[in-house]
Design a protein around this nucleic acid. Structure first.
Length: 566
RNA sequence: CGGGGCGUAGCGCAGUUGGCAGCGCGCAGCGUUCGGGACGCUGAGGUCGGAGGUUCAAAUCCUCUCGCCCCGACCA
C-alpha cells in the first residue's frame, strides 16, 4: 500500500476527547473515527489488524473443534422474555420496534439465539458435544462508554457456545477453551493472567476472566504472589485481620455525642475500626436490607447481590433509612424487628465489638454475635483488599488493574431449561443440555495490545497482528536513485508476499520517521542517498533503537530472514 | 443516574465594557529544502452544537435543548 493513498491520515496533535493512550494513538494513527458515544468506524489500518486478530482466533477455535456459524443481530424480544435475562440486562439491551410494532432487541450476546437454535436442532446425545462460534457485532447500551475501544456500545466479539451432555463434558469443553484462549492471547503478543470472576448478568457457576494487566484497566484484580491465586475484586475472597478475641463481656451503653462515622467513634472511644460493627443500608429490588459488617471492612456489592438473588441493588436513601425508624450513624442490628438483616462473616470474627445504640448519641460496647443479635443471612460479603491474607496460602494479597479481554463461563443448564433445549440420553430420558459460553472482544483486544505495546513515539505492533509488516521509507524521493530503488524494492517485497506500507510521500525525514514510529509497523526499511552511496539499505525494528545496514543485493534476503525469525 | 468539564475551520486552541470570527498545525498551488515533525510566498476552508429571547448590533447576555469527555454509580 502506498501511504500517499492510504485512507486515514496521521495526526500530530492529540484529540481532546482521548485520554487513554490506546485511544490517543489509534486516533493519531488514523485508525478509528468516532461517530457517537461508544460507536466507531474502523479505518484500513485498524481493520487490517482486527482481521488478523480474527484469523488467529478463528484458527484456534477451529483447532479446538469449534464450528463457525453466524447468528442474527436482530432478535425478537420474546426470546429475552423467555430466558428472563431481558430483565438482568435491563437498559443495556437496545430495543426497537418493527413496522408491525413488534418489539425486537439488538443482540448484546447470543445465548438466547444459540440455545433456541440448538433446542430445535439437537435431539440425541449422539449430536453432542458441540462447539459453535461466531465473530459478530454486539450491541450494548452501556451507561458510560469509555477509553476509546475499551468499552463501546457496538463491537465485534467472538462468542463460542459449548453444548455437552453432562458436567464432565462441560469441564472438557471449558478446558479446551481456556487452552485456546491462552494460545490466542499469546499469539497476539498480549500477556494475560487468568483470574476467577463473577458471572454477572450472564449467570452460571464457574467463570474466569483473561486480564491484560494495565493501569488503565477498569477491573481491580486481587492476587497472591506466592500461590498465584488471582480473582476479580468483585469475586475475591480473603482472610481479614483478626479482631479482638477476649472473653465476651456484658453489653454496656456508652455516650457518643455527635460521633457518627466509624472514624469519629474510634477517635472518641480510642479504639480501632476492627473492633467495631458498622451498618450499611441497601434497597434490593425494593426490599430494605440492613447489612452489618465489621468497621474496617467494606461491603462487596456483587457478593451481596448474588447472595440476595436480586436484580437491582443500590444504597438506600436517607429518607428510606429514616422511614424504617433507623437512626443513621447510631444503628445496629440489636433488637431490630421486621427488617431483613444480612451480616458479613466478619461480625463473627471477634468479640466485644462496639456497635450503634439505635438512638441518638449512643453506642453499645461488648456486642457479640450471635449472643446479642441474629442475622437472616450470614455470609462472606466482604470486599477483599490488598493487604488481606490469601485464603489459600495465607500470604499478603496484592492489587492491580486489568482490561478484561476474554471471559469464559460454565453456564450449566439453567438456560437450556428455560429455553427448552433438551436431548435424549442413552437410556431414552430427556435431559437439559449443559452449556458454556466463551467471549473475546476483538476491538478491546487490539486496544489492550496497543496499551501494552507502545512508547512515547507511538504504537509498537506485534508482528502477528500488525496492519503491515514492513514500512518502506525512502528519504528524498526526488533523488532518482532513491526513488528507483524504493519502487523496485516495493514490488519485490510485495511479490514475496510481504505486507508493505510504502511511504512514497515527498515529506521531510522527520515527518516520515515520526509517522513510521506512530504507525508502529514492526520493520522499517530506509532507502536514502546516504546509505545507497555505501551500497547499502538500512533496516530497523520498531522495537529496537539501532538500525542495521545490509548491502543492497542482500537486503531482500535479510529482510525475509528477519521476518521469518520473529 | 449523581458530580465535574467542554462544544468556535479537518485537529489543537484564542476570542468580556456585546461592534468586520482569529492563531498554530493540517490542506491546495509554486519555489527552496531533506537522517528525526524544515522554510518562503499565495490560497481554500466557519449555520461559532441547535432553538428561542434581549439588543440598532450576540461566539459573547438570558432561557431551553442536544451532544461529547472525565470521575463515580453501573457494566460479560
Amino acid at each position: 500500500m502506498r501511504l500517499s493513498q492510504l485512507f486515514g491520515k496521521t495526526q500530530r496533535e492529540i484529540p481532546a476527547e482521548a485520554d487513554t493512550i490506546s485511544h490517543q494513538l489509534m486516533l493519531r494513527a488514523g485508525m478509528i473515527r468516532q461517530l457517537t458515544a461508544g460507536v466507531y468506524s474502523y479505518l484500513p489500518m485498524a481493520l487490517r489488524s482486527l482481521r488478523k486478530i480474527e484469523d488467529i482466533i478463528r484458527d484456534e477455535m477451529n483447532k479446538a473443534g469449534g464450528q463457525e456459524i453466524c447468528m442474527p443481530v436482530l432478535q425478537p424480544i420474546e426470546l429475552w422474555e423467555k430466558s428472563g435475562r431481558g430483565v438482568s440486562f435491563g437498559k443495556n439491551l437496545f430495543r426497537l420496534f418493527d413496522r408491525k410494532e413488534r418489539e425486537l432487541a439488538l443482540g448484546p450476546t447470543h445465548e438466547e439465539v444459540v440455545t433456541d437454535l440448538i433446542g430445535r436442532s439437537v435431539q440425541s446425545y449422539r449430536d453432542l458435544p458441540l462447539l459453535l462460534y461466531q465473530i459478530q457485532t454486539k450491541f450494548r447500551d452501556e451507561p458510560r462508554p469509555r477509553g476509546g475501544l475499551v468499552r463501546v456500545r457496538e463491537f465485534v466479539m467472538k462468542d463460542l457456545y459449548s453444548f455437552d451432555t453432562d458436567a464432565s463434558g462441560l469441564d472438557i469443553s471449558y478446558q479446551k477453551m481456556v487452552t485456546a484462549y491462552k494460545n490466542i492471547f499469546s499469539r497476539c503478543g498480549l500477556p494475560v493472567i487468568v483470574i476467577e470472576a463473577d458471572s454477572g448478568a450472564i449467570g452460571g457457576k464457574d467463570s474466569n476472566e483473561f486480564m491484560a494487566v494495565s493501569e488503565m484497566g477498569e477491573d481491580e484484580i486481587i492476587y497472591c504472589e506466592s500461590c498465584s491465586k488471582a480473582a476479580n475484586a468483585e469475586k475475591a475472597k480473603s482472610v481479614k485481620a483478626k479482631a479482638g478475641c477476649s472473653a465476651p463481656l456484658p453489653m454496656e451503653e456508652v455516650s457518643t455525642p455527635g460521633y457518627k462515622t466509624i472514624e469519629e467513634v474510634c477517635g472518641y472511644l480510642k479504639i480501632n475500626p476492627v473492633n467495631t460493627l458498622k451498618a450499611v443500608f441497601y434497597m434490593a429490588d425494593d426490599e430494605f436490607v440492613f447489612v452489618s459488617i465489621r468497621g474496617d471492612v467494606d461491603v462487596n456489592e456483587v457478593k451481596l447481590k448474588n447472595l440476595l438473588h436480586c436484580v437491582d441493588l443500590r444504597l438506600a436513601t436517607e429518607a428510606e433509612v429514616a422511614a424504617k425508624g433507623i437512626v443513621a450513624g447510631f444503628a445496629s442490628p440489636i433488637g431490630l424487628k421486621g427488617i431483613k438483616i444480612v451480616a458479613d462473616e466478619s461480625v463473627a470474627s471477634g468479640t466485644n465489638f462496639v456497635a450503634g445504640g439505635n438512638k441518638n448519641d449512643a453506642h453499645i460496647k461488648n456486642v457479640n454475635y450471635p449472643r446479642d443479635f441474629k442475622a437472616d443471612l450470614i455470609a462472606d460479603i466482604a470486599l477483599a483488599v490488598a493487604g488481606d491474607a490469601c485464603i489459600k496460602c495465607g500470604a499478603k494479597l496484592l492489587a492491580t488493574r486489568g482490561v478484561e479481554v476474554g471471559h469464559v463461563f460454565k453456564l450449566g443448564t439453567f438456560l437450556s431449561e428455560k429455553m427448552g433445549a433438551y436431548y435424549i440420553d442413552a437410556n431414552g430420558e430427556s435431559k437439559p443440555i449443559v452449556m458454556g459460553c466463551y467471549g473475546i472482544g476483538i476491538g478491546r483486544l487490539m486496544a489492550a495490545t496497543i496499551e501494552i505495546n507502545h512508547d512515547d513515539k507511538g504504537i509498537i505492533w506485534p508482528l502477528s497482528i500488525t496492519p503491515y509488516q514492513v514500512y518502506l521509507c525512502p528519504l528524498l524521493v526526488e533523488d532518482e536513485r532513491v526513488a528507483e530503488k524504493a519502487e523496485s524494492l516495493y514490488k519485490e517485497l510485495k511479490n514475496l508476499g510481504m505486507e508493505v506500507l510504502y511511504d512514497d510521500r515527498n515529506e521531510s525525514t522527520g515527518v516520515k520517521f515520526n509517522d513510521a514510529d506512530l504507525l508502529g509497523i514492526p520493520l522499517r526499511i530506509t532507502v536514502s542517498p546516504r546509505s545507497l552511496e555505501k551500497g547499502c539499505i538500512e533496516v530497523k525494528w520498531r522495537s529496537e533503537k539501532k538500525a542495521e545496514l545490509f548491502p543492497v543485493e542482500e537486503a531482500v534476503k535479510k529482510i525475509q530472514e528477519m521476518l521469518a525469525g520473529n
